[in-house]
Simulated assay, not measured.
Amino acid sequence: MSGPRVLWLARAMPLPLDAGDRMYTGFLAQALAESGAHVCFVGLPSPDAPDANPQDYLSSLEFRIVPGKPASQYRALASSLPLVAGRFGTGEYKRVLISLLEEQWDAIVLDQYALIWALPILRTRAGKRPPVIHVAHDFETQVTRDLAAAYRGNRLRKAVLALNARRTARAERALAEACEAVVTLTAEDADAFRSIGAGGDLAVIPPGYNGTRVGARGIDRDTPRRVAIVGSYQWIVKQHNLRAFLDVADALLDRAGIELAIVGGAPDDFRRKLEASCKASRFLGYVDDLPAFLQACRMGLVIEAVGGGFKLKVLDYVMTRTPVAGLESALAGQASEVVRHCLKAPNSAALCDEIIAAIDDFDRLNAMQEAAFEAASRQYDWAENGKRLLSLIRSLS
C-alpha cells in the first residue's frame, strides 16, 4: 500500500534546527515521511537561515519554498489575525497554496496557529476536502494571555500584546472547531483544546530525541559551580521569562558563588541590557558542542514562568546527564517519571534556594541525573512518533 500524500504547511523552513519549535516541526515531519508518507513541506525561507537548503538537513521531505519575506509587524497589526499569522500569511504564500491544492492530497497539516490564514482557502476548495490536522506546539491562547498580563513595559506594547492575545484565542478556537484532528505535545494542552471546541481526534505526540546520549557521568568538586539555561531568546515570551528570572536570580546566585551560563541566541540589544545589570550571569550565545559544555555544569535550569507545553531543553539536559532544576509551571508538561527526579519550586526565589542547597551535594546531583536519564531513555522516540502520526492520518482518510 502506497503511503498517503501529506501537504505540510508551516510558517517557514525549520532552520536552523536549534530551537524547540523548529526541531519539533522538522523532526516530526521527517519521521512521518520515514514512516511511509510522502510529505511536501511548504513555508517561507527561514528568517534565521534564508540561504540554507533544508534538503541538507531533512532529506526525506520534499520542499516547496515560498518566495519572499514575512510581512512587517505593522502590516500584521493591521490585519484581524494574530501577528505571526499576519506576517507569514503573505500574498505569495496564498498563491502557492491555491496552486498546490490543484493536486490530490490525503491530508493537510497546519503547523502552528500562524496557519489560521489558510483555513478560508481550504474551505473554498472544490470537491471533497482532505482532512486537516492542526499541530499545536502550545496552547497559545493561554501563553499570549499570560504574557499580556505579565508584561510591565511600554503601555502601547502592552496594548498590542493584549490585542494579539484576543486574536490568538479566536484563531485557536477556529482551528479547534474546523480541523479533523489536533496534535499536541502534552495531555494538558489536549484538554485545553477540547475545552475550546475541538470536536475531532486529539493526539498527544511529545517530542522525540535524536541528540547525544551520555553513557555515564560523575559530578564532583572538579565540576565548575555553574548552572546553565539553554534556549533561544528571539521571541518576546522567551525574553520576558529570562528577564524576569534574572531580576530575581542573578544577585542570589552571585552571593552564593554560582555562575549562571546562558546559552543560545539573543538579539544584541536585549543581551547588552541584561549584561549591564548582571553579575553571576554570562551570555555565551551558541556553543559549538552543547553536550560537552553541559558536562561542565552542575545543573540545567527550566525557568519559563509564562508559556506551558513541553520544553525540549529538558531532554538536552537529561540525556547528557545534567541534573534539572525548574519552576513547577515550566516542568508541568514533562513526563511525571522524569519530573520526580528534578528540583522544583513555585517561583524564582525558591528555585534559587533549592539550587544553592543542592549545588555541592554530589550524591544528590548524581542520583538525580542517573534516575532522570533512566526514566527518559524509555520514551521520546521520533520513529515511533512518525508511526503514530501516520496512523492518525490513515484513520481520518
Rank of each mutant, 00 (worst) to 15 (best):
168 T>C: 10
253 L>A: 02
58 L>Y: 14
53 N>A: 13
338 V>H: 01
51 D>G: 07
31 A>D: 03
294 L>V: 10
385 N>R: 15
156 L>Q: 03
290 L>K: 06
362 F>Y: 15
264 G>Q: 06
1 M>L: 13
243 R>I: 04
295 Q>G: 13
165 A>H: 03
147 L>V: 01
352 C>K: 09
43 G>C: 00
62 E>T: 11
394 R>V: 10
323 P>Y: 12
85 A>K: 04
158 K>T: 06
205 I>K: 05
8 W>F: 15
345 A>C: 09
221 R>I: 10
134 H>P: 05
392 L>S: 00
357 A>G: 12
380 Y>V: 00
299 M>E: 07
141 T>G: 01
136 A>W: 04
275 E>S: 11
393 I>T: 07
305 A>C: 01
205 I>L: 15
395 S>L: 06
221 R>T: 12
169 A>S: 15
144 T>Y: 14
168 T>A: 07
15 L>N: 03
344 K>N: 00
28 L>Q: 12
366 N>I: 15
351 L>C: 04
313 K>G: 03
119 L>K: 03
65 I>T: 11
119 L>H: 00
78 A>T: 10
262 I>S: 03
141 T>L: 04
251 A>V: 14
164 N>P: 06
47 P>V: 02
226 R>D: 06
345 A>Y: 12
64 R>I: 14
347 N>M: 05
285 G>A: 05
14 P>V: 13
346 P>H: 09
165 A>G: 09
235 W>H: 11
91 G>E: 10
339 V>Q: 02
256 A>S: 11
77 L>A: 09
35 S>D: 05
25 T>G: 00
246 L>D: 02
319 M>Y: 15
226 R>V: 12
235 W>E: 02
271 R>G: 00
63 F>P: 00
60 S>K: 04
60 S>M: 02
338 V>C: 14
256 A>Y: 13
324 V>T: 11
33 A>S: 09
105 W>P: 07
324 V>N: 00
266 A>T: 03
347 N>S: 15
224 P>C: 03
150 A>F: 03
50 P>G: 06
255 R>D: 12
67 P>E: 09
320 T>A: 09
348 S>G: 03
151 Y>F: 15
375 A>C: 05
76 A>I: 05
225 R>A: 11
52 A>K: 08
273 K>V: 10
96 V>T: 13
109 V>D: 02
222 D>Q: 13
186 T>F: 13
231 G>V: 02
245 F>Y: 09
152 R>K: 00
339 V>N: 09
394 R>I: 07
17 L>N: 07
40 C>N: 04
78 A>S: 06
62 E>H: 12
129 R>K: 15
370 E>A: 08
144 T>A: 10
146 D>S: 14
49 A>G: 01
376 A>R: 12
126 A>V: 10
208 G>V: 08
100 L>G: 04
12 A>G: 09
366 N>W: 15
60 S>Y: 06
15 L>Q: 02
54 P>Y: 08
84 V>A: 08
53 N>C: 01
156 L>I: 14
293 F>W: 14
316 D>W: 10
149 A>R: 14
308 G>M: 06
29 A>Q: 01
368 M>P: 05
396 L>C: 02
194 R>C: 01
329 S>A: 13
105 W>Y: 09
129 R>I: 07
249 A>R: 03
298 R>V: 14
213 R>E: 14
82 P>R: 03
339 V>L: 08
2 S>Q: 15
252 L>S: 04
93 Y>Q: 05
378 R>D: 12
333 G>A: 01
